[in-house]
Nucleic acid binder design. Sequence first.
DNA 1: TTGAAAGCGCTAACAG
DNA 2: CTGTTAGCGCTTTCAA
Lengths: 340, 340
Amino acid sequence: MARLKDVALLAEVSLSVASRVLNNDVGARINPATRQRVVDAAQQLNYVPDHRARALRLSRAGAIALVVPEVNNAIFASLHAGVQEACHERSTAVFLSQLGAPAEGHSALGGIIGNGRVDGVILQRSEQYSDEALRAAIQLDVPVVLFNSRLEGHTGSVALDDRASVAVALDHVAALGHRSVGFLSGAAQHDAAIRREKAFRELTVERGLETRDSWIQEAGWEAPAGAAAMAHLLDQPEKPTAVLVASLNAGIGALHSALAHGVSVPRDMSLMAIHDTWLATYSTPTLTTVAMPMHAAGRAAATMLLDHVSGAELSDIIIASPAPELMARESTAAPRSEKY
Amino acid sequence: MARLKDVALLAEVSLSVASRVLNNDVGARINPATRQRVVDAAQQLNYVPDHRARALRLSRAGAIALVVPEVNNAIFASLHAGVQEACHERSTAVFLSQLGAPAEGHSALGGIIGNGRVDGVILQRSEQYSDEALRAAIQLDVPVVLFNSRLEGHTGSVALDDRASVAVALDHVAALGHRSVGFLSGAAQHDAAIRREKAFRELTVERGLETRDSWIQEAGWEAPAGAAAMAHLLDQPEKPTAVLVASLNAGIGALHSALAHGVSVPRDMSLMAIHDTWLATYSTPTLTTVAMPMHAAGRAAATMLLDHVSGAELSDIIIASPAPELMARESTAAPRSEKY
DNA sequence: TTGAAAGCGCTAACAG
DNA sequence: CTGTTAGCGCTTTCAA
């Protein structure tokens, strides 16, 4: 492993000159010939700066952490890609970590990202976190940007336009002729889930769509929760003709549950979910979804974080563009009772 | 941020004593009272060692990277968990990274894990990598343990018992009464795919099951490839009554494709896949799979890597236990033509 | 335009 | 049993 010392030696300059050349130090007036010698030497020795020493000296890790509740959830694929992209442009590495329930939470987060391993964190809140647990978990020595979650007293968040996503879905089923619609929401602890449910209640009224408390079931984000919520909904004596699920994996669970109960989708019931991944095109029937701008959100979160590390202020923003987009597939159709 | 210096000052000891106490230096004889003072001081100041300084001094990053082709593939969930578990026990952080096609490969791997950011890498080969591309990508300054792949001249790998997994699946359909079986394999470049296909060809013969070259289609690991391979298979004038898919996501794609072509599963065709994730229980019909010991494999890979960092030799091992386990679900049944 | 030297925070000889 | 000291490899004043 070539050290800076070796480069300096080969180029016959001092350490400091070598360092300044290799860092493109702007204020440094270096003789072009000298500069060239250093560059050549570095090239020849295949020099790569030692990351640890740099980090120590600069008090900068050159890396950030992206922390999500479930690494394997495909929803995060494009979020991750967006973060990577923005960080790559700024020569920053991205570490992906999983942070589940609060129990393992506090110490785990500290262990992963504490002590200067990273310069900042983008945190996607697990639905198991209460506000208090979340607050405790982010008491770190590094800046935290929350993804699609806000916290009283914490500045630094990037949120999706939850209301718009619900509107897109409701417009779709309304246009298909549905008059009654149910909602399988996220966990009540999660502010994004609360926002989506609130939007659902308000927007159904606005559109003159019928809904009921018993048609609004708490589901959570993953398939088992979605399946259970759908089962509850199907227990009701009267059911809506269309159902919106707050998250895709829960939607997959809800679809399975509906089919297992003998409900034909979309003949008996239209089904939609928020978020779009490859899964939606490989279920049978394929699932109508609302694609959210996860890539842009990832970019925005990473950019905000890196700017902050360089001195800028954190802020709370909503990603309104690109707008949530309807991906119409087989799981939605005109309600059976509608005769034309 | 409290430094070791502050702890030493508060405890009224020298830096070295503080360091030795806090590192539980075994050979160090420290007065219990002194030790206690240091521990108390550290506690009181909420001291956390600076990771960068430690890494520099020890030439150890205290972290490893787990590199997979597709972070969001649920197959890796338990692999990841196993790695995490083993690393946690050794106070090592795990960074999860994605490494796709070779183009972005070499530099990407270097950027992620080069320069002392991690002490080693567990690498799950992407099926897009040829042996040469893989060899180029792992020319690093850190040890690499390959997961479920081997490379001529490279020591350090943990593989699954591919042959056993195929055997379990074939035994299952043979017991159900099937006599003809097809196989949607992985990419031909990938040695694990080659092993599974070889095992398939040999074991069908052993069991007296019929198969044909045209029933063995290259599929790859993800859903689109599985769907395409199934479409090809269904193009054949004669078809097997049972099909094994080499990987779960491809199996989901194959299932979708079969249903879309009007093939009823399992009535017209039984379908199985290797690897088990939540997806298999939320498709309709649910998918019969062979669960592989991914958790154990993850533990083994991490343990081997960390042992190596501490001086032990790398080796090439196969995880034979727990053995591949059949998860019988709805997608397999007795063939229709079998009359009882 | 270049070099010498200090020191980031920590650990590990080596002395007491 | 405890303290002093020399760096790990790098960047950055400060001086020449």
